[in-house]
Amino acid sequence: MSASLEIQLIAAFTAAACAIPGVFLLLRKMSMVSDSITHTILLGIVLAFFAVNDLSSPFLLIGAAAMGPITVWLTELLSKTRTVSEDAATGIVFPLLFSAAVILITKYAGTAHLDTDSVLLGELAFAPFDRMVIFGFDLGAKGLYVSGSLLLINIVFTAVFYKELQVVSFDPVLAAVMGFSPVILHYSLMTVASLTAVGAFEAVGSVLVTAFMIAPAASAYLITENLKKMLFIAVGIGLLSGLLGYHTAVLLDVSIAGCMACWTGVFFGGAVVWNLVLRKRKSGVKR
């Protein structure tokens, strides 16, 4: 498989994988939580690193993924005191955790090279260089397996628990009454989202994970009024953004992840225009 194809597949898989939990985050009015957890990943990595003192340990990624639900829990703890609103709590907790991470890195991880820039920005172009080698067989870029697994996990999770996610997001009271614990589902979703963010950040960096989680979901939200269709459309836009992003980036010789994010923005702009035109036409017909 050529490097170019590998990158395109990783891009497409990553964007598609992010779109799925993004739909539920958006519907549950937790869009900015995606931004929050992608930043606190750094603290998870740092703490895990201090625990095992090995930069290539998989424990680091577990620490990173665990940080997502922990961030959400801390944010809710703060907002449950009813002293600050939910959005304010988000905007206090994640910078605090991120600051702690940066301080810990600069003070105590001086010898180990934790490249904070690449955490925040990622670089897809280098993905093909990181190979998955088992028993001497080069099975392809590691990123391919990571993004592919993430996509699979998200698809399976959403397909199996579709009705639970649907009812808990629409009416948590009813869900609780019927015996579907909103708390369990909430934190399961957060864990999956967090896992996805960790897997994705290696390719596209923290900040842009938000673009792939929320923007396609927002576009789909404007295009359809059906949850299933919304999921499919969001994934579709994710895939398209991944592919178009790659080709535009190659053409202009710029950041792949950045182009991908721009495309999600373009699609959103298109969805807004579409939505407005459609509404105008409908209200015109009614007259």
Partner: peptide, 23 residues
């Protein structure tokens, strides 16, 4: 949340979820 992408039938069908149980 009336902007949620579900139809009237979807909402009513949710009433059956409790009897179906998980998954």
């Amino acid at each position: 949340d009336w902007d949620f992408p579900v139809s009237v039938l979807d909402v009513v069908t949710m009433g059956c979820y409790g009897r179906l149980g998980w998954i």
